[in-house]
Design a protein around this nucleic acid. Sequence first.
DNA 1: CCACGCGTCCAAAGCGCTTTGAGACCGACT
DNA 2: AGTCGGTCTCAAAGCGCTTTGGACGCGTGG
Lengths: 362, 362
Amino acid sequence: MRLIQSGLKSWTMNLKELAHTLGLSPTTVSRALNGYPEVAEATRERVQSAARKHNYQPNARAQRLATGRAMAIGHVIPVSDRHEMVNPVFADFVSGAGEAYLRHGYDMVLSLVADRDQEDVYRDLASKGSVDGIIVHAPRLDDRRIALLHDLGLPFVVHGRASNVDQPYNWVDVNNRRAFERATAFLLDLGHRRIGLVNGLDLMDFAERRREGYIAALRARDVPSDPRLIAGEEMTEMHGYRSAMAMLALDQPATAFVTSSLIVAIGVRRAVEEHGLKLGRDVSLVTHDDDLSYLRNGAELPIFTAVRSSVRHAGRLCAEMLIEAIRDGARGERHTLLEADLMVGTSTGPAPTGPAPTKGHP
Amino acid sequence: MRLIQSGLKSWTMNLKELAHTLGLSPTTVSRALNGYPEVAEATRERVQSAARKHNYQPNARAQRLATGRAMAIGHVIPVSDRHEMVNPVFADFVSGAGEAYLRHGYDMVLSLVADRDQEDVYRDLASKGSVDGIIVHAPRLDDRRIALLHDLGLPFVVHGRASNVDQPYNWVDVNNRRAFERATAFLLDLGHRRIGLVNGLDLMDFAERRREGYIAALRARDVPSDPRLIAGEEMTEMHGYRSAMAMLALDQPATAFVTSSLIVAIGVRRAVEEHGLKLGRDVSLVTHDDDLSYLRNGAELPIFTAVRSSVRHAGRLCAEMLIEAIRDGARGERHTLLEADLMVGTSTGPAPTGPAPTKGHP
DNA sequence: CCACGCGTCCAAAGCGCTTTGAGACCGACT
DNA sequence: AGTCGGTCTCAAAGCGCTTTGGACGCGTGG
């Protein structure tokens, strides 16, 4: 593949030139700008103002080669093979992370990759040296990427965890188990006994933990769990709608739902309303809420009762953890476990059956 | 700022080493791998297999410096100052673009930037030389970025257009005016006269064009436009809800809505249902649908009647256009105008008032 | 007076690749 | 035999920065 010579780029000031106009050597100019101590304060200021004046910016390509640092973080976003779907939380996550990168001078490079090609991409990123570290998204229960990245010796942070992986690694995660245990317990307290779980894909680690929390809450009250009340799929509106439709049509229909995302909850609401029922009165719903910027769960009063944990915040934490790991040469693993807040909204109320419950909200 | 020396990186094969083990010069090896003709076929194969065997990958940092090409495209994502919001279409757009970049060997680097700092970021990207081109997102009516990028001499493609900018530039856009004219006309044909427009922010170019289309359709039927039936805000669920609540509470309430995104439409639906009305029977709604992967508008039968145009497709087109522009040294501007498809779903029906309309769907 | 340290600055050697310009070799043509 | 054209290979010069290892001048103390 012969590459075409690019046309003449607009002129940009470079170090040598700048040094020449200042009557200094490139060395000194470089040191002055990078804050090294062995240059006189007067000279430094002279250099800095000249740099500003000619709006000199060091060429990033040269800098990267010389320092051996890419000053870039890789995000490998898995694109679901089945639905070509990009997880919607990703926009917010990246926005949180991007803010941290900006502060530390890192670029963020994105690779969108079909699930199955992931490993190749990691290998490439590592050997081409175009990034200094990697954020791993959407870990599976048994995620091979972690071992791979270990071998490659590339610093990384996992957003989430992989239950079946033994070796230590850096991660930031929400306490999904606890969150869903609380959500389920909240509904049980309201008297619900038929609670549907509309969850994410089974092989996802977060989905498994959420299921565990849900089951644990039921078990604590001796409420039997019913497999027909558990559905795991990619978290679309349609998944919420279909699952809820099915669970509402059971001979002992669900009177409450726990859902894994707002989008799923919106689908459930559609199903509930299509059944002529009203959310918060006839049917209750608690959802996980990633606090996405474009899908706010109400203003003061939440629309849905929810366990909330900001994915944007998680993004920021991941980025900062990774930058630290890169700096420290990755000695010692770091973990952060975030707790979700339970926020009571208008989508929950006492179970409709039983001794004449007062109509309305709790 | 003194930078810390990174620990010893895991060993990676480099060109010199590979050449040495092959008993060839770096030159020949480089040429063999890059497909230059002046190397014997036999040698080339020998080199290629050795490269595979030692899994040699040329160091991207060195390659970029030597070639003067960054092999990277910058996406500057504006983050709304007011709500710290990232436009949700962005995930899908980027996924379309990423696919094209992958094919052509480009990296995608993302900068998330507060609206007001945008220009600085463009300047930096240009002078640091860390990208070969830029995609401009979310253009305003009067967008200064276009002139700036022109001056900087950096190839770019705008996703959308800027009505008040004269100089030519590359763009990919949907025919928003036509789409909203059709959507509105469709509702007028059903007998609706009080049609609410729940639109994006006024200063956005796409929002202006959509409003023009809406007005044009009304004017063509001599239906007066009512400012109380037009609302422009950031496209959240809440915006849809609040605007619809207000428009349904008018003395002559809206009987139909045109909305600028599915998320807004969902908010409108919530308002409609809170009024005890049913979508598709009492109130009609046509929405613009970006065909987002995680928010599909139904499967076979669309939930909402919609004018649809895939933003993922637009992303792919932008990326390809930009890559071409980079290759050709940006001579001659390119444009692509996409038409949106009107898809009739279950959210529209004849206007409820008038001479005893048959109840149900058209 | 010399030795020494200190504060400033610089020359030159990389970083790992691409690319220019040329050399070496070989068969073929004059 | 001498020369030419082609094919294959290489040495060396960048790309624009960082960083090592001095050099130089100046003041201080022995």
